[in-house]
């Protein structure tokens, strides 16, 4: 089932199509095998955000979280990933019922350069003022441990950049990874559909 971002827009929230969509979503959530399989438990995250406030992923239970891994000086996939996520974020912020249940976390791949004040400025580039999207960093060891636990890595590349996998993790309300996107799958209507399904799961 594919839905457009318009299908879920605020203005049309109460159309028969949306009522049907909600019904299908709830019905799907009751199935023994949901469309979004449980991939594995999301590893722990204990870092600080752009305001130097401690952040732990376990504090987000009851919320659906999109966890990305980027670094601010990346000239490869990171800006494209953050841009796509920003589209999702700004769309989610317009939707009552969704915005209260969805959070975004972007974890740096380059803790040495991406200190809190750098992340604060990077956040502004994408018009992110809401507390629902935080950028995280920590000591080199803390970040390295988080990357390793999530199966992520960052290595110096020949061009002076960091080589790294491009993945965005969708974590459900119970702290389980339910989807892993790369840019190919990070499409607004698809992500919205996935978020909608997860927030209505019981």
């Amino acid at each position: 089932m594919e839905i457009s971002s318009n299908t879920l827009s605020r203005k049309r929230r109460t159309t028969p199509m949306n009522i049907l969509l909600l019904f299908l979503t709830i019905a799907g959530a009751d199935d023994a095998a949901p469309r979004l399989a449980v991939i594995k438990a999301a590893p722990a995250v204990k870092l600080i955000d752009q305001d130097e406030k401690p952040r732990r992923l376990e504090d987000y239970r009851g919320k659906v979280v999109l966890v990305s891994f980027v670094f601010t000086t990346c000239s490869g996939t990171c800006p494209a990933t953050t841009h796509r996520l920003a589209r999702v974020f700004h769309d989610v912020q317009k939707r009552h019922g969704l915005k209260e249940k969805v959070e975004f976390l972007s974890i740096t791949l380059d803790p040495e350069r991406d200190r809190p004040e750098v992340l604060k400025n990077y956040r502004k580039l994408y018009d992110i003022e809401s507390p629902a999207w935080n950028f995280l960093t920590g000591s080199n060891k803390q970040v390295k441990d988080v990357l390793s636990a999530w199966g992520m890595w960052a290595r110096p590349a020949a061009n002076g950049q960091l080589d790294h996998p491009s993945r965005v993790f969708l974590v459900d309300q119970r702290g389980r990874i339910r989807e892993i996107y790369n840019l190919d799958f990070l499409r607004l209507p698809w992500v919205l559909q996935d978020l909608q399904e997860l927030i209505t799961e019981r």
Binding site: P79, H83, A86, K124, Y126, N182
Partner: peptide
């Protein structure tokens, strides 16, 4: 919107492999 500038910059991000290496999963 400031991030609108990025929309222009990344509108052309291809969904297919940018490299010529063929016959692998597009996610590799």
């Amino acid at each position: 919107m400031r991030y609108g500038l990025f929309a222009v910059a990344f509108a052309c991000v291809s969904v297919l492999p940018l490299s010529a290496e063929t016959c692998l999963s597009p996610f590799v």
